[in-house]
Design a protein around this nucleic acid. Structure first.
Lengths: 363, 363
DNA sequence: ACCCGGGTGGCAACCGATTGCCATCAGTTG
DNA sequence: CAACTGATGGCAATCGGTTGCCACCCGGGT
């Protein structure tokens, strides 16, 4: 039997390679940069066990006896061993990464989403990889292709991909959608209906008789929902509804929308999101209109800037951070084997935050 | 020789497994979900070559003859083969991911940084993984540990880690720092000196005789630079300088700072960043001071909100997006074998954007 | 006729874990 | 005392590519 021999030989080898670092000053710190990466094989040798045992000691606590585990742990510590996530991923096909796909990291609402996702992910020892579509279909595809094979799951914060594409992806990897509901895909959505309803009620109470919706991207599911909710609320509460746009979901988009309305501005506007609302207010003010005396404006999201501008923006707030976190948690649950309650949608409450961009219409 | 036989057998096997999907409607799309993942071995078999050749066809164009490559490509297409990035990474130790570490994705300036990084990365076919420290030292460490072994390089957008820690990391992986200069680590920094100087000149021209700097996190290198630059500029231009803080680099931090000053507010304030500046303006205004009549305020960064609030914020702008992109490009260059011009710092120009938060002091 | 060299493709050894299966061993149980 | 059982550790295959080295083919040069 050779094992004894082998161990001895290897031990020498190890010591040789160690002292081989010799003159270098960096050899000082024990855990710091060895020449090569330390593997379970090295640890196994030092601890006098088989590599598989080392693996188990890390990946499956309880599978090895307490003192073997201790020996391994100390050997690992001495060598400064760290498990190589790539190697692990290759055999387990679990990368411990999840992708979050959004259309624009520069939009504060998405930043909140990401923040929430980040929090939930790191709690579960997961890493977030960012796929920013930059409002472009092709970039989105590219980003997706690049990212998809590396992650265990995906949360789609916003996407202009076709329903069918998303559904195809969803059956390959756990996927959660935010603010878009699709049969077969679980999602987290805000209660647009209720939020919009509250906004309309608010306008009604102020004495408005008509509301104009300024639409966002057509591919946005939320956009559709908001408009529909507005229609319904308008019908019920006897306010006329109109629709303008679509416009880019940015301050600039809002600015343009407002400028196109200056010769006959509506008295009340419900904008696709806060960015658009803010852009519109800016443009109205700079063309001589007063907000809210001449025109009332409401947005969606309640981003930070909404309370900073003046007049403060009345807006339908949604809990971005919570949503991001919820989405990630669900993806993780799916990964953990939870049954994919397909078309289930978690609906998050919205809240109307009244500030000073809304007021009585002049008559 | 068996090869012929083997091919035939395998072909049957393949076909069998294909028809095996049988009744399922999804069998329609040719490239879509096969039962198992397609590997180079499958492609090799179908193309009648060795797996190594397939690998080369994809990883090393030119290494195989044109028509073999064509045969392989078409086989791959037929099977819907995609290279598995994990497997590739395992042997090449190149994951094609780079990490960007920032303290708060919710800060619009960092969002810009990330956006820039994103752009540069995706152009080079790289993926960005986000490490958000959430302004916490331990979280930062955790995030780093999790992410470090999986990425090819790092850009540190902001960090409260010790210099020595960063330097240790830098000698393990390509690392670029943003807005912090450290010997041994290449970086991209803004020209704080010039920018600050311009701000002080501006105040001087308006007739101010003193400026108070409201400091940000002590671990921030930029904070030190800004304060020092202010001191120097003050000396040269004969303005008194004072220092307040430190405060949290957020709107709330600014608000608090302003409130602590209400009984004897300075006439001119230079705030650590726009968020702080905005918070201060808000607090001043709501406690009855007028900006800029009673107090002038200048920030740094030129985030979107700076132009939205009123009065518009005068600020020292820096090109966040460009910086993020530059950092990533440099990390990639280092990866590509560029010599690590260690303590080189790319300095980006700043620009003073004058809006309405600065004016003549009352006397 | 012989040697040389570039262009191609295959073999097999990695990269660094994980895991199914089996052998061993100690402790029970009848 | 034999048979059984559960805990523990080792062997070797596997995840899906990459790559150093070698063999072979073919056209040219002398």
């Amino acid at each position: 039997m050779v094992p004894e021999d082998e161990v001895a030989g290897d031990d020498l080898g190890r010591m040789a390679s160690r002292s081989g670092r010799g003159p270098a000053a960096e050899a000082a710190t024990s855990t710091a940069g060895s020449r090569k990466t330390v593997t379970i094989y090295d640890v196994a040798r030092l601890a006098g066990v088989a590599p598989s045992t080392v693996s188990r000691a890390f990946a499956r606590p309880g599978r090895v006896s307490a003192d073997t585990a201790a020996r391994i742990r100390s050997a690992a510590a001495e060598l400064g061993y760290r498990v190589n996530p790539l190697a692990r991923a290759l055999s387990t096909s679990r990368t411990h990464m999840i992708a979050i796909m959004i259309s624009d990291i520069t939009n504060p609402f998405y930043a909140e989403l990401v923040r929430g996702a980040q929090i939930a992910a790191s709690e579960a020892d997961y890493t977030v990889v960012l796929a920013d579509a930059r409002e472009s279909g092709v970039l989105e595809r590219e980003a997706l292709e690049r990212v998809l094979p590396m992650v265990d799951g995906i949360v789609v914060g916003s996407s202009r991909m076709a329903d069918s594409t998303l559904q195809m992806i969803a059956k390959q990897k756990p996927l959660m959608m935010l603010n878009r509901h699709l049969v077969g895909i679980p999602s987290v959505v805000t209660d647009n209906a209720r939020g919009t309803r509250r906004a309309v009620e608010h306008l009604g109470e102020l004495g408005h008789e008509a509301v104009t919706y300024v639409a966002g991207p057509e591919a946005s599911w939320a956009d559709g929902m908001r408009w529909r909710a507005l229609r319904e609320a308008g019908l019920e509460l006897h306010l006329h509804t109109r629709r303008a746009g679509p416009v880019a979901p940015t301050v600039e988009g809002g600015r343009l929308a407002a400028l196109s309305m200056v010769d006959d501005p509506p008295t009340a506007i419900l904008a696709y999101n806060d960015l658009v609302a803010i852009g519109m207010i800016g443009a109205f003010v700079s063309t001589g209109f007063r907000v809210p005396q001449d025109v009332s404006v409401i947005g969606y999201d309640n981003i930070l800037a909404a309370e900073l501008i003046s007049p403060g923006l009345t807006t339908v707030a949604s809990p971005g951070r919570t949503m991001g976190a919820a989405a990630v948690k669900n993806v993780l649950a799916l990964l953990g084997g939870a049954l994919p309650r397909s078309d289930q949608a978690f609906v998050m409450p919205t809240r109307l935050v009244v500030r000073h961009s809304t007021g009585r219409p002049r008559r």
